[in-house]
Design a binder for these strands. Sequence first.
DNA 1: AATATTTAGTTAATCGATTAACCAACTTGA
DNA 2: TCAAGTTGGTTAATCGATTAACTAAATATT
Lengths: 340, 340
Amino acid sequence: MKKETVRKEVTTMKDIAREAEVSVATVSHVINNTKHISDTTRNKVLRVIERYNYVPNSAAKNLRQQSTKTAGLVVSSFPDSFVTEMIFAIEERAKEMGYNLLLVNTNEDRDYEEKTINLLHSKLVDGIILSPTSGDIQYLQNYTNDNFPIVMVNRYESTIENIPRVTGDNFQLGYDATLHLLKHGHKKIGFIYSYPNVSTTNDRIRGYQEALKQYNIPINDDYIVQGYAKVKEGATAAEQLLAKDDQITALFVQNDLMTIGAISKIKELNLSIPDDIAIIGFGDFSSSHIIEPPVTNILLPPETIGRTAFDVLLNKINNPNYMSHIELPPSMLIRKSCGC
Amino acid sequence: MKKETVRKEVTTMKDIAREAEVSVATVSHVINNTKHISDTTRNKVLRVIERYNYVPNSAAKNLRQQSTKTAGLVVSSFPDSFVTEMIFAIEERAKEMGYNLLLVNTNEDRDYEEKTINLLHSKLVDGIILSPTSGDIQYLQNYTNDNFPIVMVNRYESTIENIPRVTGDNFQLGYDATLHLLKHGHKKIGFIYSYPNVSTTNDRIRGYQEALKQYNIPINDDYIVQGYAKVKEGATAAEQLLAKDDQITALFVQNDLMTIGAISKIKELNLSIPDDIAIIGFGDFSSSHIIEPPVTNILLPPETIGRTAFDVLLNKINNPNYMSHIELPPSMLIRKSCGC
DNA sequence: AATATTTAGTTAATCGATTAACCAACTTGA
DNA sequence: TCAAGTTGGTTAATCGATTAACTAAATATT
């Protein structure tokens, strides 16, 4: 039951060599400038290449050179403006450095993540930038033991220390945003996170709790709910929080889509922002300032994180012993939704 | 000045074969299920594979099999919700069909697009889904002559008819949105597009003009301005349109970011939406319904377009003679900004 | 019992480049 | 004039898999 494959007539270096009446080695040297070739021969070869519209077979090249000038980028989610901008920055930096990017989205599926990294490993890419999903990623240890370059971006896994990483300071982020709300007099602050058991969520929650502790406010785990990084689920999470007898007066939401969901739910309930419910979102998403009221956000710099991550990967590729844990500070973009 | 390369100790199939005391062929057959191997041998091999955490070298596999199970996706822009969702859909469909996706963003750079396709060609990928940027893309003809599978998505180039494509019906889209504004009594309608000389823009403008013509309204090219698909530039475009003596009363904007920019500019000018200026945007972006007033959009289905595009590519890969031009109809999501 | 078929493996050619090692012819220098 | 160096190439091994063709042993068939 073999599939009938239509054999493609693809020009190889051999064809070019034959046509130009030189050896394949010469063709290769002309293409790669690896040896001095006389102008006559060089031009003869180039003309044939031109005529046949010849492009060297990358698989063969990769196999021989043990390098692909391609990097893998494995992210766990996608249409969230922070991640999108980070991807964009990595892409851009890769382009600048002469690399291509193989982008894969695991959609928070741990098994798929492992499978993908397996696939990307072994010379399909020179290295991987990974934003891991939750769960045990000890399997990564095998790759790092093999000296296969991996760097973590945005999220990290604290049990694995020997992988370089570039993230935001999410503890500080959680702390700063919460403190801001506390200063406005809020005592019951809801926290809507995307996914559990990932460093971004964990660290922000720790920061949130630390701020509350400093204000001597008891920590209530019921105030911390999941919103799956989506509009609808963000709305549901907000609804759930606002339905409590406790009269929560502020919301701290961890991504743009959930923020939009939460705001639409608050409006639907005919509550006023920020008078009834204050809200702080995450990331400088573009509609923030035209939403009514304009949304106050706490941010991390996606471009810097992305570009830095790629540079770190490059360092790791060139030097297997390279190591660094880079953490970038958050900042706040204060508008109206927090009550300022 | 050769770079000192640290030779990586990578386990090959030969190592596995030696260790399991079988031939490399047997190892290959175990891995690929290409021949019946006794349970004893199979297990012996599998154990060694497990122990060494062995993964076959894809470059070698690709070279031999003349197939990579990877598709290239070349887009010309990125952080726009329509494109993002389309990419997401293509990704998802590729995953379902056992393919990986090599995503490259050309950022509207024609030369980079050509270079990228050159690179992706020749067995780095099995085929390419392309959303071409403007300019002469006759160079594509070389690839299609080689039977290299390419399909165009979202945008197309009308001078090349022998490449399958999946797009929206943008003429209809331009027509419908404009007609809607005309029915509300608007006569001076500004049109803000992202990039010139691409089919999406051209077709929508044709639709826009056709609608005006049917209402016997003279076409004024000054009403058609560029917004570069970005928030800031969208705002500038809106400002430029509203500054005219003509008193434009409606805006038809071709992507989410520019729509957000235009709205913020209108608010900045203390004009009311929809009373002073009606506005119709494009795409069902998530903040549409919480912006004040909620934004009316005309849409195309990014998921259907994306999934279909991948299926078309698959057809083209399996059958070089496959051909189709698929055009999906627009729909409208009416909210308040149009004056309804 | 002789022959045919099945099972379980092996051998070796192959994919299309890169590149170290080699070589021939020509220059240069003393 | 002859050794040394330079120029402009070529030869052939190699990267790490896949797979057609082959073989030996075991099993089935007549």
